[in-house]
């Protein structure tokens, strides 16, 4: 696959192997209406990678499409050069915190153990090894002493850390996180960021959907600016230019929105 672009970098690629994650011409629609248009992106080295863009830009949708949670109408996503279903156990996921019912009758340990279910397969219950792994994961996010607590009795930041611990228990090589810093107190933010930095140091790729521009510049090695389409991608310092930000946050999505309506109704724009 040879094409030009900002982030088709030469440096840091793992022993010349395939890219860790590769979006190829990804178009995602809700119903028939496209909300992500033709995203083409490769990430070929372990790093902290931010997906940045305004609200409603389709950042989370892009992540969900990569995980097969929303269907793509065009394009493909590959991890380690292979389709997701062949390498699922190497891809960890942290969904948005609001997507679940925190009043659910499970405790912290139960949730973290869910990270091990993928490898356990059907019918097998988590055993001593899985419990140890879950305890270690909780320890890394600083929640070891809350293992027995019902998840509804945690603060927002603690809940987010539980989700992170669950992903750690997946022992993946690529982590996809959906707005992990949203509605989270400063201490939890720092703790989460510390864990993410550790993951990167261990040679894993961490992709984070993020909306806060101020922290983005300081946290991420590389970023992609997304607003219904990919505006720019590459090293943070190169991408976060006033011009690119202007194109992302005051961009031309009204063209895409109008066109999306026309596509959805199988008609034409005015």
């Amino acid at each position: 696959m040879s094409h030009a672009g900002v982030d088709r970098g030469q440096e840091g690629s793992r022993a010349g192997g395939p890219p860790l994650v590769e979006f190829h011409d990804v178009t995602v629609a809700y119903g028939r209406r496209p909300v992500i248009w033709n995203v083409d992106l490769e990430i070929d080295a372990a790093c902290l990678f931010g997906i940045i863009g305004p609200n409603g830009a389709g950042k989370s949708t892009l992540l969900k499409a990569a995980l097969g949670l929303v269907p793509m109408v065009g394009g493909s996503v590959r991890f380690f050069g292979r389709p997701l279903r062949e390498v699922r156990s190497r891809v960890g996921y942290v969904p948005q915190r609001e997507t679940v019912d925190w009043d659910f009758p499970v405790n912290v340990m139960d949730v973290v153990l869910m990270g091990t279910y993928g490898r356990l397969g059907w019918f097998r219950r988590p055993g001593i090894r899985e419990r140890q792994l879950a305890r270690d994961s909780l320890d890394r996010v600083g929640l070891a002493d809350l293992a027995g607590r019902q998840i509804g009795r945690l603060s927002g930041g603690q809940q987010q850390r539980v989700f992170l611990a669950r992903a750690l228990a997946q022992q993946a090589d690529v982590y996809l996180l959906d707005e992990p810093m949203a509605g989270v107190d400063m201490r939890s933010q720092e703790q989460i960021f510390r864990v993410l930095a550790e993951l990167k140091a261990e040679g894993r790729l961490v992709v984070v959907v993020h909306h806060d521009l101020r922290t983005a510049a300081e946290w991420f090695d590389r970023v992609a600016l997304v607003d219904m389409r990919l505006v720019a991608a590459g090293p943070t310092a190169v991408v976060l230019t006033p011009e690119n930000l202007q194109r992302t946050y005051a961009g031309h999505i009204d063209v895409l929105e109008e066109l999306g309506r026309a596509v959805a109704t199988r008609g034409r724009t005015p």
Partner: peptide
């Protein structure tokens, strides 16, 4: 339990 608690995570993990 997994599906009832977090269907998105369940689907993402296969």
């Amino acid at each position: 339990t997994l599906v009832a608690f977090d269907a998105a995570f369940a689907a993402a993990t296969g």
